[in-house]
Amino acid sequence: MSAYDKVLAARDAKKLMSVDYISHLFSDSFFECHGDRRFSDDKAVVGGIAMLYDMPITVIGLEKGRNTKERMERNFGSAHPEGYRKALRLMKQAEKFHRPVLCFVDTSGAFCGIGAEERGQGQAIAENLMEMMTLKTPILSILIGEGGSGGALALAVADEVWMLENSVYSVISPEGCASILWKDSSKAAEAAECLKMTAKDLFDLGVIERIVREPKADNQNMFESLKLLISRTFEKNMAVSTEELLNNRYNRYRRIGNYSEISIEENN
């Protein structure tokens, strides 16, 4: 598959969405929470509490919706500031009760519109990045479709980030990149190659920890093994001290683009 095939697969309306993962992994144990307590309830973000075996966890996902009606309701998975603030509220709640946080990322990007700007889209994302970096409970983020720039990163500052084999993660859409570079959005396939946005590219660049096989809706066994994998990761991270957890999380990002080897002199 070419990079652009992966982009198309990641956007495929028939693939599994956040709500599907939640129901396959947690079935009836999931309790959905609503609202950011500040402005409204953004349905592009679905979140709540669930049981992972015998461990309560907080689950938050960016949700695109399956049919036209759902997609309209969920704004095609593009959250407004209130969506990111709702996510942060649930994370802070998880921190209070020391529950691990599981995030599913699937968005073409944070919404670009008048209301989003008026209510501080940039500030909302920035606050998530800052707060997630020191959230005193384990965080795991899984990209299950599109990882569109800052709007995806706002749910992906974590101890580990995984990607499904057919998901993508990029600073800009290949169409956007092509129209800036070549003034021609139809060259998206070329741009997708240049951007290095597939799970394999990101794994090779050291940006993600794991590539996950794509579960099939009718194969519950695949979900069971994913569940086991998630649970082991949380158990491992619940066992280390908060200080170590947060140091590891900081260093996970700190080492990306650490150019110490070519620095000529130390700061005075």
Binding site: L129, G150, S170, K196, M197, R249, Y253, G257
Partner: peptide, 15 residues
């Protein structure tokens, strides 16, 4: 710089 530049948002926010 693709994803590497995106990661700088998280890195600087951490600092």
């Amino acid at each position: 710089e693709g994803i590497m530049s995106l990661m700088q948002m998280a890195k600087t926010s951490g600092a």
